[in-house]
């Protein structure tokens, strides 16, 4: 369960989105859409707890959320298996084999991450979400540099995650092939110039 109420998020001193509200039940996914710079990344980082909301509240986030940003946090001098095992140990989960299999990385498990192609690296970054064992996935442009087959692989993984009662909030531009997901256009919530939400600028006006 993830619910946000009247949320406002800010990038630096400027409020970018305000009045955001949605509720996500187990098994549901939300696709965030909006033009570049509309605040999708800021919203996801706020959901993940990396920055505090400007106003409003987030219920059910915190320790339940696993976050995947633009960068995959991979170490090029560690092998695929070592990278994934590290995150499994950090999250206190066992077994990286299902995650490797889900993204067809098993044949690459002993390759150094630095020698992978961009798409393979991204698949490894996405496989990390599986070893976190967390129910809510917050993902920022997960399909960048993935080919069509890999996108299908990703969609199937998300669908399986939802099937087990998981949730997902995904910012993306392309059609993932997840017809059951709700589309949420953030540009409708763009902050007006004289926003009611307090930003640090406001004190000086």
């Amino acid at each position: 369960m993830l619910e946000i109420r009247d949320l406002a998020v800010a990038r630096g001193a400027a409020c970018v989105l305000e009045g955001l509200a949605f509720t996500l039940a187990p098994g549901q996914a939300l696709i965030l859409r909006g033009p570049n710079g509309s605040g999708k990344t800021t919203l996801l980082r706020t959901l993940a707890g990396l920055q505090p909301p400007q106003a409003g509240e987030i219920l059910g986030g915190g320790e339940e959320i696993a976050y995947a940003g633009h960068s995959d946090g991979l170490k090029s001098m560690l092998t695929v298996a070592e990278n994934l095992t590290f995150w499994a140990e950090i999250y206190g989960t066992r077994g990286i084999d299902p995650a490797l299999a889900a993204f067809e990385l098993t044949p690459l498990r002993d390759r150094l991450a630095g020698t992978l192609s961009a798409g393979q690296k991204r698949r490894l970054g996405l496989a990390r979400m599986l070893v976190t064992g967390r129910p809510i996935w917050a993902m920022d442009e997960p399909t960048v540099s993935l080919d069509a087959a890999s996108v299908e692989l990703f969609a199937a993984t998300v669908r399986a995650h939802l099937g087990q009662g998981g949730l997902a909030v995904i910012a993306t531009h392309i059609d993932l092939g997840l017809p059951e997901a709700h589309v949420f256009d953030v540009s409708r919530f763009a902050a007006r110039a004289q926003s009611a939400a307090a930003t640090s600028d406001e004190a000086f006006l």
Binding site: L50, Y67, G69, S71, G73, W87
Partner: peptide, 16 residues
Amino acid sequence: LDWEDGTLDLLATAPV
């Protein structure tokens, strides 16, 4: 190095 490749973001959201 951990900042550049995004590891710090992920560590900050991890249960440590």
